[in-house]
Amino acid sequence: MTIRIEHLVTSGTFSLDGGTWDVDNNVWIVGDDHEVVVIDAAHDADAIAIRIGDRRLTAIVCTHGHDDHIGAAPALAEATGAPVLIHLDDGLLWKHTHPDRNPSYLSDMRRITVADTELTVLHTPGHTPGAISLHAPNLGTVFTGDTLFQGGPGATGRSYSDFPTIIRSIRDRLLTLPPDTVVHTGHGASTTIGAEAPHLQEWIDRGY
């Protein structure tokens, strides 16, 4: 069966540093008619489970530990038996939201296989310490979470974030990918590496 990428938008809130905001999140489902992985189980486990249907969920991968990206992960894991995977450096953020649940931890360059296709973990810190992107070269795609959006880098104005770090992550781990690589983001529209490179160049020129 041909592997495909499915897109679901779920809505809820994001809370950090004493504030709460309404947000719409992208949930990405990668796989075929038999097995899939979910990238960012946001807000609504039931809606994600309905989209998966009777396919086997092999992993729930979290691009980072903000509560809007991981809120539904334990419920989805309980319903499906799939493991929750998050980078070790975001373990503290995970515990802020789910103090009584233990995920499995990812490391840089780990390969996650679904439907005979590999997704490679790229550690891209800055938005959070353990932020990752998932590169699927066979699909010409990278899933960047909140590291890179259409128009520039993700936000770095809150706790655990750092602007120079996110610029270095984008420069060293993402802009090195082929320009026609499709960028599927954590919120909003998709883009390409080539389209976003000019937006980052001014920061790179400043020495970040």
Rank of each mutant, 00 (worst) to 15 (best):
10 T>G: 06
12 G>E: 01
13 T>Y: 11
14 F>G: 03
17 D>M: 12
19 G>V: 15
20 T>E: 13
20 T>A: 02
20 T>G: 09
23 V>N: 05
24 D>P: 09
24 D>H: 11
24 D>L: 11
25 N>S: 15
25 N>E: 04
28 W>K: 10
28 W>L: 11
29 I>K: 04
32 D>C: 00
32 D>M: 01
32 D>K: 06
33 D>V: 09
35 E>D: 06
36 V>T: 12
36 V>I: 11
37 V>W: 02
38 V>E: 01
41 A>M: 04
42 A>C: 15
43 H>V: 00
45 A>N: 13
45 A>Y: 07
45 A>G: 10
46 D>K: 11
46 D>M: 12
48 I>K: 13
51 R>W: 14
52 I>L: 13
53 G>V: 15
53 G>I: 14
54 D>N: 15
56 R>P: 07
56 R>T: 15
59 A>M: 14
59 A>D: 15
60 I>F: 08
61 V>N: 13
61 V>K: 15
62 C>K: 07
63 T>L: 09
65 G>Y: 05
65 G>F: 06
67 D>A: 08
72 A>Y: 04
73 A>F: 03
73 A>K: 10
75 A>G: 06
77 A>M: 11
77 A>C: 10
78 E>N: 10
78 E>C: 05
82 A>C: 06
83 P>L: 06
83 P>S: 05
83 P>H: 07
84 V>K: 02
86 I>F: 09
87 H>E: 12
90 D>T: 05
92 L>Q: 09
95 K>N: 09
96 H>G: 08
96 H>P: 04
98 H>R: 09
98 H>W: 12
100 D>A: 12
100 D>Q: 12
100 D>E: 14
101 R>Y: 10
101 R>I: 14
102 N>V: 13
103 P>N: 02
106 L>W: 06
107 S>L: 03
108 D>G: 03
109 M>R: 15
111 R>V: 11
112 I>K: 06
112 I>N: 09
112 I>S: 05
113 T>A: 14
113 T>G: 13
115 A>F: 13
115 A>N: 12
116 D>R: 13
117 T>W: 08
119 L>R: 11
119 L>T: 11
122 L>Q: 10
123 H>S: 10
123 H>W: 14
123 H>K: 11
123 H>N: 08
124 T>C: 15
125 P>W: 08
126 G>D: 12
127 H>R: 12
128 T>F: 07
130 G>V: 05
131 A>M: 03
131 A>S: 15
134 L>S: 06
135 H>L: 01
135 H>A: 12
135 H>Y: 14
136 A>Q: 04
137 P>W: 03
137 P>G: 01
138 N>M: 15
140 G>Y: 13
140 G>A: 08
140 G>Q: 07
141 T>Q: 05
141 T>H: 02
142 V>W: 00
143 F>S: 06
143 F>K: 04
144 T>P: 06
145 G>T: 01
145 G>L: 02
145 G>D: 00
146 D>T: 00
146 D>K: 01
148 L>D: 06
148 L>H: 05
149 F>G: 05
149 F>S: 03
